[in-house]
Design a protein around this nucleic acid. Structure first.
Lengths: 146, 146
DNA sequence: TTGGTTGCAAACTATTTGCACGCGA
DNA sequence: TCGCGTGCAAATAGTTTGCAACCAA
């Protein structure tokens, strides 16, 4: 995502270019995967007055414009990530919490036949597959880093 | 799930057989797919005094024992369904809200090669794939029946 | 009898909304 | 200037928890 591109997409859609939106987009790109709360904390490091509700409203706009994506990596909060990187789905182990990424390409190859037959186009980047590592991950009880 | 089987599973795991648990299990089986709130409403039709927190606590126990399953069909509440029927995943259209079921068998056939290679065993019954119907569903704005 | 279960109320977490002010275009 | 966007506080929605009474075993 080049600097001017996201600015242009905002304007083209009738939205305004604000400091907050810039900071939020940057925070998401820096953090990798982050919940709204984590984005808030990151943004506050440099701008303590930014409100949580602004985070929610902005993430929604950025998401609609395809500037960020989100997935549900836990039953709780959604996690947002940059839309710059390759679109990918997540595999999550219920025992050890380990996250594995699967590229859109790989997934589409596997699921394509099945969903095409049903006239359905999956949102691969939003997909999270819960399950279990097949090999002794029971030994690790660590949770994924917050 | 035969009558005595779930009773046995409860006892075998050191839990007690209560009217509430029986009613909740029955409600889930009658409703097909239902949120905790909807289960609560259903149970209340015959027993108005049952509390919502009992619904949550019971669904958790029943889920642990494999007597019910749940998936996240919306970003809001989880929906529970019977574990008696065939294990299945869900496809959900973001435009028209239509839900389609995919059997565990079908999905496992498609995803097997991919996840086996990663040493991962998916929880197919918990899987929800969001996306879009490929054919003009834009015309229907109906939401799925509650 | 006894400890798992429940009802109730309050606490919590995540998210949304109304409103007046501020700022981008 | 105009009206979208923001900060703030309060409202919502969903879920969890402490505790005393209750009841299945």
């Amino acid at each position: 995502m080049t600097e001017p591109e996201w600015q242009e997409r905002l304007r083209a859609s009738g939205h305004r270019l604000t400091k907050q939106r810039a900071m939020i987009l940057e925070a998401v790109e820096n953090l990798g995967h982050a919940t709204p709360d984590q984005v808030h904390a990151e943004v506050r490091r440099t701008s303590p007055s930014v409100n949580l509700s602004t985070i929610y409203r902005s993430l929604e706009v950025l998401n609609e414009l395809g500037l960020v994506r989100h997935a549900h990596l836990s039953d709780r909060a959604p996690t947002y990530h940059s839309a710059t990187g390759e679109e990918h789905a997540h595999l999550i182990c219920r025992d050890c919490g380990r996250q594995t990424s699967v590229s859109r390409k790989e997934l589409a190859a596997a699921l394509g036949g099945l969903v095409d037959g049903k006239g359905f186009q999956p949102d691969y980047g939003h997909l999270t597959i819960f399950g279990w590592c097949q090999t002794g991950c029971h030994e690790q009880v660590e949770q994924p880093s917050a």
